[in-house]
Structures are given as C-alpha cells and as structure tokens.
Amino acid sequence: MIRTLSLIATMAVSLVFSGLASAEPWEDGVHYRTLSSPVNTSSEEGVEVAEVFWYGCPHCYNFKPLSEAWEKNAPEFVNYVRLPAVLGESWAPHAVAFYALESMGELDKVHDALFKALAGERRPLNSAEALADFVADYGVDAEAFVQAYNSFSVRSRVRQAQAKIMGAQITGTPTMLVNGKYIVSASMAKSHENVLKVVDYLINKEHGLSE
C-alpha cells in the first residue's frame, strides 16, 4: 500500500513538472524581439512602456480599451507613454495633433473622439484646419490649436518620436516598446491580449522580478 502511494505521488509530481515544461514561454524572437541597439527612454527611472499607435488604425482602436485597462492597473514603476507614429504621409497631421493637444493640456478632451472619427468613421481630418474645426466641437480653442499645431516645439516632439520609432525598427501599429529594448506586436504574440501578457513578462524582467 505504501509502495503504491509512493508510486502515485511520483507520477503526480512528474505530471506537474511535465505540465510546466510544456507551458508556452514567452520567447525572444518569437513572441517579442530584443533590439540590437536600444533606444532612449523618456526617464532613467522605472520601466517605460511606450504604445506606438495611429489614430486612423482600426487595430489600435480595438487595442485601445485593453491597453487603457492595463495602464490603469500597471505597477507604480511603469512609465506609460504614447508615441503617435508617422509610417505614412497621411499619418503626420494626426501625430502633430496629438502633441499639439498634449501641449495645450487638452488631449483628454479629444483623444477618444479622434480615434472614433479616424479609425471608426474614417473622417478626412488631414489638415490643421480640419482638425481645428473638429476639436472645437469638444471645447478646444481652434485658434490656439492651430498655433500649437504649427509651433516649433510640437514639430520637434513629433520628430523625436519618429526618431525613436525608426530606431526601434517599428513598421506597424499597434506596437509596444518596452524600456527601449523590446518590441511586441499582435502578429508576434498572436493576440492583443497576449501582447499585454508579454509586456507583463518584460516589465518584470526589466524590474528584476523574473529571470
């Protein structure tokens, strides 16, 4: 009887370790990619998680509620930033609009609406004037928006963001850039939900909470 129980216990332990071994790990080069040359982060403290997006991207629009929920519950050591990408000429006005609104402290008023208008409704908001008319409907001063849109500081921020995106060799949206070292996309992780699981793994790795 004792021998039988010992055999059962041994089999149970073997099954547990077999299950752990067969569990799919997050692998470099498969579920995420480590950059050969890391890019700068906005702060030397904490772990930066940068969401690279475009307002006109339907996949970014679908990813948005997931990423926002993740950001809301992220550990205190995470610095979450958004980088509007310019991977095509038509994307440029929307990246400029993002930084113009951010510089005015008005981004929260219009961020959701811009996603809905551009990714959801595909409205032709491709100039400073068209965007100014749009944001005015949400309580943003149109004239002040155009001034910010054309300002040197806003254009500089757009250039800095694109240099970072290009340095990370990002070619699609949405893509997550973790601490300037790793990139994760749905095509790599196989789903938007998995993207955030891989990000969890990577931020813990960077923060020294996992091997």
Score class of each variant (00 low, 15 high):
L118E: 01
F98D: 09
V78L: 01
P75W: 01
L87I: 15
G120P: 03
P93K: 03
W91R: 06
L87H: 11
K116F: 09
G105T: 06
A95T: 12
A85Q: 07
V110D: 02
D108M: 04
G88L: 13
E76R: 06
K72M: 10
K72S: 09
E121A: 07
A113I: 04
D112L: 08
Y99N: 13
L87C: 09
E89G: 15
K72V: 10
N79P: 13
W91N: 06
Y99V: 15
V81N: 08
V86R: 10
H111M: 03
S90W: 11
D108S: 09
A100P: 04
K116L: 08
F115K: 01
P75I: 03
A100K: 02
F77W: 11
E102W: 00
A113F: 02
E106H: 01
F77M: 08
D108H: 03
L87N: 12
A113Q: 08
V96T: 15
R123W: 01
R122Y: 11
M104G: 07
N73T: 11
N79M: 04
P93A: 10
G88M: 14
V81P: 04
L87K: 11
H94F: 11
R82A: 08
L101Q: 03
P93E: 05
K109N: 12
F98C: 06
S90D: 14
M104C: 06
V110C: 03
L83M: 14
W91T: 10
D108Y: 07
V96K: 12
G88H: 12
A97M: 14
L107T: 05
Y99E: 13
A113M: 02
L83Q: 08
G120F: 00
A95G: 12
N73I: 08
F115C: 02
M104L: 15
A97Y: 11
A92L: 13
G88S: 15
A97T: 09
P93Y: 03
N73L: 09
L114C: 02
F115P: 04
R82L: 10
L125P: 02
N79A: 05
L107G: 02
E121P: 01
H94Y: 07
E106M: 06
A113W: 00
P84C: 11
M104I: 11
N73S: 10
N79T: 06
E89A: 15
F115V: 05
F77S: 01
L125V: 02
N73R: 03
L83A: 13
